[in-house]
Computed example of a mutant assay.
Amino acid sequence: MNIDSNRKDQHVELAQAQYNQSSESDFQKVRFIHHSFPQISTQDVSLQTTLLGHKMELPFYINGMTGGSKKTKIINEKLAIVAKECGLAMASGSLSAAIKNPDLEDSFKVIRNVNPDGFVMANIGAHHSWENAKRAVDILDANGLQIHINAPQELVMPEGDRDFSMWLSQIEKMVQNVGVPVLVKEVGFGMSRETIEQLIQVGVTSVDVSGKGGTNFAAIENARRTTFSYDDLENWGQSTVVSLLEATELSNQVHVLASGGIKTPFDIIKALSLGAEAVGLSGQFLHMVVEDGPEKTIETIQAWKEKMISIMTLLGKKSVLELKETDLIFQRDIIDWCEMRGIDYRTFAIRSNHYL
């Protein structure tokens, strides 16, 4: 097994181990205000939204995870079956390994082979040239490109990158040249307002703020180290909730997606209510297809659909767009962040204007 394939298998094993460790998420620190009269029926609710211009019947998708080895090819095949049967968009894991070694392309191409008509995003790191990005898109015949940014992971990774000086200019070239819509995604460290502004300046129109709370790649890479530990970076970054609040003032300039620590239909609805247009899940889907298989995962997604409709009905909201008018209450540490960063958190508690 080559180095890249071995690393991909280690990532999956460590991500699965992380999943089974209980941790508090900032989504638990966000509450809806209950209003007693929803004044709608479940039949009034639509879960439709868009991702990179693609209309989706459900407001969540399978986020970039894996590929690059025999084991991960099997996982990608299972994920692609779920995507096809449920009509979910799907992103591949990073295609860097396949660009270095064409023998590994098969572990990614299985996504398109299983789901020839689905909406698929190819994933690649910001350090790559636009030519490599185009190659990644071509390998998957992809409908979009997902560019991941992951400086903390690279620095903790023993064999990771150490030069980030060209990332923004490389992203700008990809946006201009790859020929498909581009989504720039963090990998679990969250985005600040300043980061999103920089991405807008280089032409990016869609971002996934991907905050901490889910798969922790700093911890994964730290576990792979054989020399001194980087455990002080395992808590680096901001949560998905905080990152969505950071993006609030820029939502009229960029499409905002969310991922990171999102495991349940309730988490999805909260993320949408905080301003996300759609939500990506990776660790949760990885766990489900590995532990339960595609068939049971498909059944779970159908149950999620019913539950999300119920929650939206309770909130009196007929669409994903209307969820941005829900009334939200935050716990103190989220409020502290907002106060320090000049984010007007009080407006979130009175958005429905029921009594005005």
Results as ranks from 00 to 15, higher is better:
137 V>M: 07
98 A>Y: 03
242 V>P: 08
151 A>L: 02
35 H>E: 15
149 I>L: 13
186 E>M: 03
292 D>P: 02
256 V>Y: 08
72 T>H: 00
194 E>D: 07
310 S>M: 12
154 E>D: 04
283 G>E: 00
43 Q>I: 08
297 T>D: 03
232 D>C: 08
282 S>F: 05
278 A>E: 10
144 G>K: 04
189 F>P: 03
71 K>D: 15
58 L>I: 11
214 G>E: 10
73 K>S: 11
311 I>K: 02
13 E>S: 14
248 T>R: 13
286 L>M: 09
20 N>W: 15
193 R>F: 15
107 S>A: 10
119 F>M: 10
284 Q>K: 14
128 H>T: 11
174 M>D: 04
254 V>C: 08
329 I>V: 06
201 Q>I: 09
105 E>P: 09
16 Q>A: 14
160 G>P: 12
64 G>T: 13
50 T>D: 06
203 G>P: 00
54 H>L: 11
68 G>V: 15
150 N>H: 06
169 S>R: 15
233 L>V: 07
28 Q>H: 06
265 P>T: 11
217 F>Q: 01
339 E>W: 10
316 G>A: 11
278 A>Y: 09
107 S>Y: 01
299 E>L: 14
82 V>D: 08
56 M>Q: 01
72 T>G: 04
47 L>K: 06
126 A>R: 01
280 G>H: 00
328 L>T: 04
55 K>S: 01
247 A>K: 08
38 P>D: 12
97 A>C: 00
56 M>G: 00
87 G>K: 04
290 V>G: 09
284 Q>M: 08
120 V>P: 00
226 T>D: 10
152 P>H: 05
72 T>S: 01
158 P>A: 15
137 V>E: 14
280 G>V: 12
348 F>D: 01
292 D>W: 03
244 L>Y: 07
180 V>Y: 09
92 S>P: 14
177 N>F: 14
8 K>R: 05
342 G>L: 06
277 E>G: 05
158 P>G: 13
177 N>L: 10
23 S>K: 07
311 I>F: 02
125 G>H: 02
138 D>V: 11
205 T>K: 07
87 G>W: 10
206 S>E: 06
77 E>G: 12
89 A>M: 13
50 T>Y: 04
349 A>M: 13
278 A>D: 09
67 G>L: 10
217 F>Y: 00
145 L>I: 12
336 D>H: 03
215 T>L: 10
125 G>T: 08
84 K>E: 15
323 L>T: 14
316 G>L: 14
173 K>S: 13
254 V>Y: 11
106 D>L: 02
60 F>W: 07
174 M>A: 00
16 Q>W: 13
301 I>D: 02
260 G>N: 09
288 M>S: 08
177 N>K: 14
144 G>M: 06
172 E>N: 08
18 Q>H: 06
34 H>T: 15
218 A>M: 10
69 S>C: 04
295 E>N: 13
261 G>A: 05
251 S>L: 09
291 E>A: 12
295 E>L: 07
133 A>V: 08
228 F>V: 12
88 L>V: 15
202 V>Q: 14
338 C>Y: 15
344 D>K: 15
70 K>Y: 07
